[in-house]
Write a protein that binds this DNA or RNA. Structure first.
Lengths: 196, 196
DNA sequence: GCCACAAGTGTTAGTCACTAACATCTGTTG
DNA sequence: CAACAGATGTTAGTGACTAACACTTGTGGC
């Protein structure tokens, strides 16, 4: 059941994406987005706390955190995080990622939006630490999460803009292999040697 | 020779730091900072492009980039970056870091400022890639830089607020060991085993 | 000392993101 | 249909940031 609020929210996101693509993030005002969605600017701010959030909305933290937590412990934190992220690759390659790609492509052009993406990353980092860090190893896990997520963000930016037709999954595989060279040795055959 | 502009800039930074500590980043207006420094708000914006920048000013990118570039190539990108950052530890432990610590402690409390720190990190990342990436390996280097810098940022936030009396250098050593476990084996004896 | 000249700063008048308070409308439930 | 809650609108702000133009202060040549 789609509530009225959900429909409004979706219209705002869609209108914002279109307008940002046409005229650039900076040049579009919240008023204009709201008008294009047929609502007032107050309604916009009831659905999104900031202009930035209408573009950079990311509800995947719990999924990512669970994937990391599912990795066997006992191995170094950075390997657990890397393997957890790799385990999500099949999911990535089947999702309807087109609107996400458009959003990231817009963010890639505006430095202020990359700061916003970093805020997303920080939230994901916290989720991973809470879900997957053994007691007493929170710092290690936070460092490992920060490192791996930064690497994923780096390839996300490429993927969104580059003409390169590589799948997001393959790029994430490369990123994890770069961060944890040991992964390419044997553990994840599907991605071994994928890095150039 | 200290120019008038440099003096004004320093007064603005100092006044901002004091006011932010007393009343919090959000609650202090640019007008108030400017007034405390004896100038108008327009002068503030001539010295700093945004309110955020008066706190998060970071001129160390060239030093960091050079330190990474100085590492021998042929090893994985992530090891070069990690070793480059480690080579700066002696410098860290002798610098007058007190105002930096105060600034980071303020930033640690405000999510919006952590986004600003991420913008700093992105700039550092670009500087490292430009200075140290062999032709054709830019992506690998960018991923490695993003990962290591994220790890350093994570410990910086701890260092600024925690009562822990560990030196910044020791914390950075731990961070690099977490990201590149291989470093603890032999290469950098001073930090081997420093991680808990 | 005086006179360009430029760098630094001030004033004023805006735009736009974002907030608070209160009114209105719409859909649902008894 | 009445009552109620969720969703939206209106209005009136605050504060970050910009543009245009005037002014002031320090510096070098005469």
């Amino acid at each position: 059941m789609t509530t009225r609020a959900e429909a409004t929210r979706a219209r705002l996101q869609s209108a914002a994406l279109d307008l940002f693509e046409q005229r650039g993030y900076r040049a579009v005002t919240v008023e204009e987005i709201a008008a294009a969605a047929g609502v007032s600017h107050m309604t916009f701010f009831r659905h999104f706390p900031t202009k930035e959030r209408v573009l950079l909305d990311d509800p995947f933290d719990p999924v990512i955190a669970a994937a990391v937590a599912a990795q066997p412990d006992g191995t170094p934190a950075i390997e657990r995080v890397a393997r957890g992220l790799l385990s999500l690759v099949p999911l990535l390659d089947q999702e309807p990622t087109e609107s996400a790609r458009r959003a990231i492509a817009i963010a890639a052009r505006e430095p202020e939006l990359q700061a916003g993406m970093a805020a997303n990353t920080a939230a994901t980092e916290r989720a991973i630490v809470e879900a997957a860090a053994p007691a007493g190893e929170e710092t290690e896990m936070r460092i490992a999460a920060a490192a791996c997520l930064a690497a994923v963000t780096a390839v996300l930016l490429d993927w969104s803009t580059d003409g390169s037709r590589r799948t997001l999954g393959a790029l994430v595989g490369d990123a994890m292999t770069t961060v944890v060279p040991a992964l390419s040795d044997a553990a994840v055959p599907a991605y071994a040697g994928a890095a150039s």
